[in-house]
Amino acid sequence: MSKDLKEYWKKNVTFMSFLLVIWAVVSYGCGILFVKPLNAIKIGGFPLGFWFAQQGAIYVFVCLIFVYYAYMQKLDREYDVHE
């Protein structure tokens, strides 16, 4: 692999790992691990932990995929590997 491509790949993997950390935090963190303390906080009629587990985590998942798509669009062009 050329130097450029190595850099491209490294940037891709770094950004991806960052998104996966968010993925884990909203689902395993807010939705499971910290559900009890978060449930003590109320947003309208929603206990926060419950909201993350049944609504919030899913919204975040959708956003993560679109953010990754947009980032990779830019990165592909920057390193001239786009289709």
């Binding site: 991806m16 996966l20 559900v35 587990a53 985590a57 998942f61 995929i65 990754y68």
Partner: peptide, 20 residues
């Protein structure tokens, strides 16, 4: 609340699918 495992489990996989 215990049903959340299905909600998160059956959607979170798409993030893995899209990224990995």
């Amino acid at each position: 609340y215990a049903g959340s495992i299905y909600l998160m489990g059956w959607t979170g996989g798409y993030v893995l699918l899209a990224l990995l």
